[in-house]
Every structure is written in structure tokens, then in C-alpha cells.
Design a protein around this nucleic acid. Sequence first.
RNA 1: GCCGCUGUAGCUCAGUGGUAGAGCGCACCCUUGGUAAGGGUGAGGUCGAGAGUUCAACUCUCUCUAGCGGCUCCA
Length: 692
Amino acid sequence: MPAITLPDGTVKSFDDAVSAFDVAMSIGERLAKACVGCEIDGELRDLSTVIDHDCSLSLVTEKNRDKTDNPQALEMLRHSTAHVMAEAIQRVVPGAMLVYGPPLESGFYYDIKFPEDRPLKEGDFEAIEQEMGAIVKEDRAFTRYDMSISDGMEKLKAEGSKYKVDNGEAAVRAGSESLSFYATGEPGKDWEDLCRGPHIPSTGRIGGFKVMSLASSYWHGDENSDSLTRVYGTSFFSKKDLNAHLERLEEAKKRDHRVLGKKLKLFHIDETVGQGLILWTPNGSVVRKELQNFIAAELTKQGYHEVFTPHIGKLDLYRTSGHFPYYADSQFPPLVERDHLVELSNEGCTCAQLSNNMSTGEIEGFMLKPMNCPHHIKVFDSQPHSYKDLPVRLAEFGTVYRWEQSGELNGMTRVRGFTQDDAHLFCTPEQINDEVQGCLSLVKTIFDVLGMEDYRVRVGLRDPDSAKYTGDPANWDKAEKACLDAAATLGVPFSQEPGEAAFYGPKIDFVVKDVIGREWQLGTVQVDYNLPERFDLSYVGADNEKHRPVMIHRAPFGSMERFIGVLIEHFAGAFPVWLAPEQVRVLPISEKSNDYAQEVLEQLKARGIRATCDMADQRVQAKIKNGSEMKIPYLVVVGPRDAENRAVSVRAFGVAKDLGSMPLDEFVAAVAEEYSLKGASTVKERFETVTA
RNA sequence: GCCGCUGUAGCUCAGUGGUAGAGCGCACCCUUGGUAAGGGUGAGGUCGAGAGUUCAACUCUCUCUAGCGGCUCCA
């Protein structure tokens, strides 16, 4: 006699065991038809699940009441579509062995081992989609059946796929008491797969689907293990939703910083210079310079001192810091004096010996700096410090070089040479909390000014099982506590992630997503007891004894490259006035107005405004189109009428209609004000005041 | 680094085993036009690089290189 509690608190009692579908039917047929699954005591299950005990039940419908997407329903749908795709792929490519096919936030994938002589190609997608279409049309029910562990494992072994056997073993390790299989249709007759479920009722519920892309992956995510092919797809309950999704992807592409970087002439990457090396073109340089000036002003307010240090340092420096040779793989090769190299070569020294001798310190050389901290430590250590001096805050826009794997490089967001808005704070243990909080508030200030609200905060802690973290565990505990305490004061949710710490200390990272949903770490604050130890740093305390300072590494933007890459996407290239490479463009109606246009231009420039004038032999409509495509904040049209009134006709980016006419002096003053405020659009506001 | 895809004019992209085309941009001419493309003419390409197959390769094969999507990595 199960008593079933529904989300609204209603309790429904049944004489016998019932399926969740029956419960839905008892409420209403329309509801039952809209259901794809259910949640029993908080666990997502099939709609056909039989309930024979008291429980709470929540029905999962295709859409929420307000017609928005229901993530749980989509998860089930996509998991089910993964099965359909897998069946289709096995029809198209016999011998393809299934590994693992989970749902994702915006679709699903299936990892598959293809026969060596028959890899999957994008050209196969059409055939796969056709087969999928047929399976959907057949509207076969997803049918679950359970087997005992021993029977199930025997079945898997008999099927001969080590991957599925492995999945079965993993389920057993995770504590499963049985193994569940899902047949797409009738068990024993139709295609089936070992799967924990749950699934939607039948294939006919898949309204729209698409095979998206191919990638490789590794079994168990281990690069030394089997290489698998990962097939990505997505699906929706309706064709319309699918199309909307595909359109969103197209729109996102237009906001991609690599696309906009070219279109708006913000940066350039040249094969001849090297991959992952950003050439800042004049437009992008304006954005960077404005941001750097902004942060430099903030740093002065917060008591930082700016320093400059070179791009290279001796190998020995990095032996002391621990960067070399532990991270040799991700650094540019060391620079060794030419004569020395010739000498070694004459002595028959091999590359391997050379490398080895560099590690052991027998050969000295220089390294492009992978981090700024060793240099800053040496600045700090260039003179003795009293506890009264602390904290010492040293800041530098420091350029570092790292040998990132070629497959990892990505526009401005993952590069081999980049400039961190770096600083290192040397303080007493008592000062850590205040200093970390000061750093965090700086990051928040920046994010607020730029209107970046969509970020998450991650506190990276050490992984107790990993050997890569150096230093005293007691200090680690202190540092981790300091980070967690500071993060708690932020007022935004944060996650704790073991294994995400730097090798020398825990950190607080600000993570944002790009237009295609990839996450990037921007700002970071890291507490470090380790490097002061390695470099034997000290200060004289009130007790006249030597004490060890603690270091805080922090970079609110992270790197100028990555930050601006993300920022381009955040603004979709339409920068606010203070950042816009070109703030105002003057558009004379015809040659006859060129003189006045020139005068307008001079006035703008005299106020430090980045303005140009489009004197091309074109109609003003064309000039407006060109100016709009470059996403210039203000276009001002000037013709005889304006010249006579000493006015300009203003057009603001993103506003379809022109704002109207404004006296020239007033416009110049308004733009200058908007520039200095770094915030709201004062020009538009003035028009609103006029019309109000 | 691994798997798949891509590389043709400054940009976006068509294209064929017989040494190339469009639109935009650029130059010049006409046009002097009041809010998202006025018209004409012209210049511009070792078809990513190298090797191979072929009478003939931008096209087919291989290697390399770079970009894209993932995987792995990210002090």
C-alpha cells in the first residue's frame, strides 16, 4: 500500500504497487503524456519505475510549467539519444565498440573504439543521422531489465568488450547490487546497452537531434590508455528547440574573440612569429593600455609599488624556486651561451647530456621567465626589512613565457607568451587574511566596473594523495584556511576543489566561461609559505629576531591576453567608451561639410577623445553601416544644418535610430565625461533628460 | 602531445586532374548624397610548405606546418 507524497505535499495512496506513469495518469492524462521520467526520493528514475513503498515522487515533464527547458528532462532525453546514436553508429560501422556515453549540459557524447581500419569520419554523419531517424520513427520503448552481478558480468564478458566489462566492474565498485541493461525496444531482440539509466519512455520522444562533431579522448581520461573516438551530438524534444539551439551557436560564433579580433583589428597571430604569440595591433593595444592604466591607478591607491624586471633569469634562480627542472616540459628551452654550446659540441656532448647537465647545474644558462615571482622575491630581498615595512606589495605587468602544448593553444585565451598584471605581497602571518581580502576586493572592483557578473569562484586546495605539492603540511593547512576564510567574506558562492592548488600553495581563482562554454581562469590569489622558505626570506620582528614572511601571489586579470580575449566576448566587441579603440567617428554628409567635420574632429581630439573622420566619397548611409560594424560607440553625422547650428547629429551604438541633434560643445563635454567615468552612458542620458 | 576537420585575393568563401572565381575591402572615375551598402572601371593569387603519382596536380597520395572542435595538460 504505497503512500506517495507529491511535491505540493499531497499524499496519494494506492492499494498495490504502481508505476510512476500510473501515478501521473491518476492525476491527469495530459500530464502523463508530458512526462518523461520521475524523481523518487530525490533520485531521477524511469517513468515506468514501479513503486511499492512509501516515497516522495516528483514527475519530470518535457518542459517546466512556464514552458522553460527542464534540465532533468533534457538530461534523460540526451542520455537516451546517446543510445540511439550508438545503435546507429554500430549499424554504419560494424565492429565499433561502445565505451561510455553520458549526457552533457548541451547535448551528449559517446566514446567509441572504432576498428583500426575503419575510423569514423565526419562524412559518416549523414548516414548515422538517417539511421537515428529511422530508430526514432520506430518509436521503440526504452526497456530496463536488471541482472545479478554475476549473471550480468558473465553476459558482458560473453559479449567480448573489455570496455563494457570495465564499466560493469566500475558499477560493482561503486556499490551496485545488480547490473541494469536498457534495450531500445524488446530485450533479447533489439539493440541494448549496459546502462544505469534512467531513460525517456521511447525513442519517439526525440523531436530533434544532430550529430555535432568528432574528437578523440582517452579511456579513463588517461593519455597512456586507449585512444577513443568521442562523437558529440545534441537533441531536443522538438525540432524547433533544436533549431533555436543551432542558431544560438551561430550567434555565439559571431561573438568569438578570434572572429571579432580580426574584424575589429584588435590583435594578430602570425605563423612566422610563432604560434601562441600575440601581436597587439593598435586597436587592441588601446584596450590593453586603458585597462592597465585603470589597474595601475587602483594599485597606487592600495599601496602597491611598481617594479620592472627583465624577461629572463639564470637557471639557478629557477632551480631555487623549483620551477626548473620540475616544470621543464612546460617551459621554453633554456638559453645557453653560444661559445659554451660550441665548446660542448666539440667535446661530443649530446642533447641528452646537455639537458641532464642543465638539470644538475653543471651548465649555466638563462631561462625565459615562466613566472614573475623569483624576480620579485629578489627585489624584496635586495634590502633588509623590518616588520614595520610589511606588507611590501610589488606589482609589475610582467611578461612570462610557457611552452603550452600545441593542441591547447587558443586565440588569446591560451597562449605561449603573456603579460600578467602580477604582484607579490610579502607580509607577516598575521597580515595574511587582510591582504588576501584586499586582493579579492580588487578583483571584485574590476569585475564590477566591467559589468562581469557571470563568474564562479574556486578555492583550489592541495590533493593529499599527490606528491606535486611542496612544503610543510602545517603551513598548507594555515594557507588553505586563510583562503577559505577570505573567500567566505566575498559574498558569492565558491567551490572547494582539491588538486587545483598551485604547487607552492592554495589559491582562489575567478573562473568565467567563453562564448562556447569553455571555462577560463582569470583572476587568482595564492597564498604561499613555500617560496619564502626556498629563498630564505626574512624580516626583523618586534622581538629583534628574524622571521619568515608569507607571500601572496595575485593577478586580478590573470593575464592581459586571456582577460581581454574574454572581455571582447563579454562586450561582443562593443566596448564602452573608455575602452573603445575608436570612441567617436565623424561622418560628413558630403565633401561640402568636410571643413566643419574637421573642426568637430579637432575639438574631440583636443579633449583626448579617440576620434576619426570618415571623409570617404560615400553616402552617409554607407558610412553609418561601416561605423556600426566597427561597433564604434558614437557616430556623429555633420552636414550644413549642423554646421550652421554648431551642432552634431548623434548616433549611439546599439540604438537603431539616431538620438537627434546636440550642441557640439555639449557633446564633446559629455563624451569626455563618459570617458572619465568608465561607466554609464552620459551622452545618452543627456538626450533622455532633454526628452523627459 | 593525441583524434577528426580545415588551409584558394587583405577579409568571408565558391570551384575543377588541363596553371582560378564571387562578394566585401583597396585604387581611380562618375556621383555631392541627412541616418545600416549609389554606379562604373581596375589592380591584386607560387591555390599553407615540401615530396610523390601523372603527359598534366590547386584538385589524388604521403610528410610537415598552421588554424578549428574535443581529449590530455595548465607552476
